[in-house]
Design a protein around this nucleic acid. Sequence first.
DNA 1: GTAGGGTTAG
Length: 971
Amino acid sequence: MSVSIVSTEELIVIDGRSKRTRDRIAFQHHGLEDVDEYYLSISSATYATLVRRPCPHRTQRIISRPLLLCISISLCGIVFGWNPQPSLQQRSSPPRLSPSLQLYLNNHLTTTRRKSSPRHYSLQLCESFQSRELFASDNTEQMSSTEPPIMYQLTQLRDVLTECLKTHDDGVNTTQPIDVLKDMLSLYTSWCFTERPTSQLRFKVGAAIDQAFRMVTSEAFSTPYRLHWVNTGMEALQLQLHSGRFNATTIGGRLISLQQPYNEIPKGTWLKALRALTSKDIISSQFPSSTRSIMALSPRDDLQWITPSNAAFRILQRLVKSKGIRTFQRKNRTQQQQQQQQQSLDERDFNMVLHAYAAHPHTRHMHAAHRVMALQERTVHAPPLSPVAYSIILRAYGQSKDIVNVEMTLLHAQRNGVIPDIVMANTVLDAYVNCGLLDKAQEIFRSMTSNGRLESTDEKGGFWPLLRPNSRTYNTLLKGMAEDGDVHGSMQLSRIMLSEGLWDEITTNTLVKAAVSANEYDLAEDILSNHTISEFSSTLQDHPNVEAYTELLDGYAKDGQLDHSLRVMQLMQKRGVSPNAYTYTCIVGALARSNKIRPARKMINYAANTLSAEGKRVELTPVYNAFISGLLTDNYSTGSTRQSSSHAAIIVEVLEVVQEMQSMNIHPNFVTVALVVDGLGRCSPPRCNEARELVLHLERNASLGVSLSNKKIATALIQAYGRANDVDSAMESFTRIASADVVAFNALLDVCCRCDQVKLALDLFKKHASYDLSDKQKSSVKAKKGQHSILPDVVTYTTLISALLQLKTRAAVKRATSLYSEMKNKLQISPDTILIDTILTAMSSGGPIGYTDDDIKFTLTVLKDGASLEWEKGQYEKRKKAVRGILVGCSSEIWKNDEYAFGLVSDIPDDPLFRKKGWNKMDSGFRLWGGGDDDGDIQLQAEKRSGDSSSVDSFLASKGWNDIDSGFRLI
DNA sequence: GTAGGGTTAG
């Protein structure tokens, strides 16, 4: 901290980051005691900032040089003869101040004055003085003499506003600034009524009020972004835009809107709002969706709450349509020039909104993303869609493994004449790799490099210009090979990278991953010996290769080679690679799973006491989570000492760990709570009430997701209730989930089935898991309808089919059969070995089912479907034998031909569903155009249709590509 | 706007 008197003008320089007490000491040192209210600091030579708290980035205000001068004078103890604060009572026409504001003014200003030192008082005087200065300086100097009285009142309010913006930094009450703004407008309204001011005066006063609005919005839309602040800003925008139409019930009457141009908002403010709304903090905050909403700007609805992305989209629409965007009339410009200047739209503004919709898996809304692209495409004065925009949605589709939409997006880009850049090419490569289509990725790679181009004749090849692959290109391919278990291909590729000079630390990490997942530990160790970055010395961030070491360590641990894991820890130390939270999580989890409790605790302590040079501690919550998870993993197979310890004893220990966390100020998050809830639910009898209490007890950490509405926690609770045969409570838990997913839904169905309420399960399935095409589209547009629709998966069907078959009635088998075919044909979901096994076991377990023609057909279909799945060695043959056994001893003859055929071709499944790898991982999107078609080969369809523009168009229309404001009213 | 690690779910 430095305090020094620079000159008479620039008085004091304080390092704003210093502690409050130390600031005060410094003031006292200079004979400036009792400066509790204000700290001053110089931010540049010409501007100074007036800050009240040791947190300058939030409360910075730019003030002018005269103020500094003024303050410096007053601090030196010179008392003004001028009284800048005329009392409110003396006004000829008293302003209509809200009661709350009156109270505030009376309490605050008078009491501080009373108990303040003269010096302090003069500080306050100066601030008032400064307000006058600022307002006056907006116009010409001679105005100050003819200044209307309202300016004084506005000055008062502005001071209050400054005060509010400074004091509620912690966000206790953000309505106050809005109240002050409303008071200003109300003041303005009555002024207009009583004084009938000239347009020139109205302009001047409008400018003053506008400035107050800007104070609020620039505070609200500044980093770090916080939801309640952003909402305050939005409310201010709404107030300013619609002040005339604002139904001010709290003020008691209508307001007169500000005069042009102050009833509109500068473009810069809109862009600030856009940036805030699309920021990561606001879009993907951990808040449940109910609180993560933004007030709409529309005045017609009483209060409409929309998602931040939708709010951003509306602003984008405004920018496009120039609605509510302030323009300044300049005489020396032609109208056309003005229009151009005003309408100039930056591609980045569109991309910001696009990114907001597409980037984060939890809040992803692709239909809306397409609307953004459509808006850009349809707006004449907007820049054309660029590879950047396409990269954004390609990445999103790639992440959700939605291969069909990846292809469609590429097609659209091609039709739009987009020339891909290297980033877009890498994005597509990654999308293919994510979808498990390594060969497709390699095909693109060949198309974009010179070698393959000559051979490629199809139009797709022509789409890719000659691009120079970079490290990311190779690393992406490498990742694909690593996941494919192709160690040798990876090694080969990495040698090319080395020779091209494109090897980086990611290459090392990915290569190690490839080796570890192929269990080639020696190779992994070799790679690390040769390619660990050695010149790395920064303590501010993790060593770039810590991931590779973590991967190796984790590989050993999961392979049961704990001693080698520990050796890797030592190796890391030797090579100067500091373990991070992930590393500790892996090792602690592994130790706990093997019942090595004391070493695990030692490791946690070690992690807790290892500080980086910056004094940053390893994030310990995940480490503790791994510990708890390991404790709860039953490990009866090994002959360890704790083998006999009961679940109840473990729960005691786990609860102690949670307490320990809290006492150490390590906040349990939703993972912690979900684990413990699950553990409590596994007790006998299940300790459901305790589990629920625990959630409520820890709920105040809303930002950590601990809540009954958290889907992971709720799912664990549902299962606990299921074990306690309490269907009603399980149902209740389910309804609390903010946006239920298929896992939670499956858990609920399972509870119903366990409690012999199969009928209820089927009803729930009908109610929630609606997969009707038209229905799905409707719900994605409106997204509002009370109940969420859930896309069922294999587990959903397994749960229902299993429960039905256990009823062992003819009707139930019939229903199970139709569910199975519905799953396969309509939803294109592939059965897995568990489902196959469930059905085969039930059908061959004897009793009244399994012997009619239909039963046999069903069993054979299921057996055939199982042929293409990966089974443990010999397991599938066992299933075949069992089924054969039934067939031989059964009266139905229907199988004879079928079985013969099946026996011959058993290794080549004839179902087209299984022809393509990875098809069952696809997202719902494909049904939008793959629809009712029973021919399952999507790939073929995509290729077939790529030349057929009409079907492409209808697809695009269905996705909203050509539709600007479906679902959105233009403002 | 593009590449890499851990904790959860039937």
